[in-house]
Simulated assay, not measured.
Amino acid sequence: MTYQHQLTPWVVHKLLPNLKHLTITRFRRRPDAEAYLKVLNQSQPYAQFTITFDSGESNFAAQAES
């Protein structure tokens, strides 16, 4: 995880078919991400978006499944 990604852990994703997602943008604070999500939902009412917190611990899930 890059330093820039560590500074901006809140990520807005667009949900795509087949359980895929597209990263739209990253934010430093959750309220900023929620405000952006509100604008996206108003401008694209038929698309689905979500906010996630990227902790950088991607190997945690792999270890938990073992």
Results as ranks from 00 to 15, higher is better:
residue 21 H to F: 08
residue 23 T to R: 10
residue 27 F to H: 15
residue 61 A to R: 11
residue 18 N to E: 15
residue 9 P to G: 05
residue 14 K to M: 04
residue 26 R to N: 04
residue 15 L to H: 11
residue 22 L to R: 14
residue 64 A to R: 02
residue 51 I to W: 05
residue 59 N to A: 06
residue 60 F to C: 08
residue 21 H to S: 15
residue 63 Q to C: 10
residue 29 R to A: 11
residue 46 Y to A: 13
residue 6 Q to A: 03
residue 54 D to Q: 02
residue 51 I to A: 01
residue 36 Y to E: 15
residue 25 T to P: 06
residue 21 H to R: 14
residue 20 K to G: 09
residue 46 Y to F: 12
residue 30 R to C: 05
residue 30 R to S: 06
residue 14 K to D: 02
residue 49 F to G: 02
residue 29 R to T: 14
residue 7 L to M: 10
residue 53 F to Y: 07
residue 20 K to F: 07
residue 11 V to R: 07
residue 56 G to V: 00
residue 39 V to E: 14
residue 36 Y to V: 10
residue 13 H to V: 03
residue 2 T to N: 02
residue 13 H to G: 03
residue 47 A to T: 09
residue 9 P to Y: 01
residue 20 K to Y: 05
residue 29 R to Q: 15
residue 57 E to T: 08
residue 36 Y to C: 08
residue 41 N to T: 14
residue 6 Q to F: 05
residue 2 T to R: 09
residue 33 A to M: 02
residue 39 V to C: 10
residue 35 A to D: 13
residue 10 W to G: 01
residue 60 F to T: 10
residue 6 Q to S: 08
residue 29 R to K: 15
residue 26 R to M: 01
residue 56 G to Q: 00
residue 25 T to L: 07
residue 43 S to P: 05
residue 20 K to W: 09
residue 10 W to P: 02
residue 7 L to V: 04
residue 5 H to D: 00
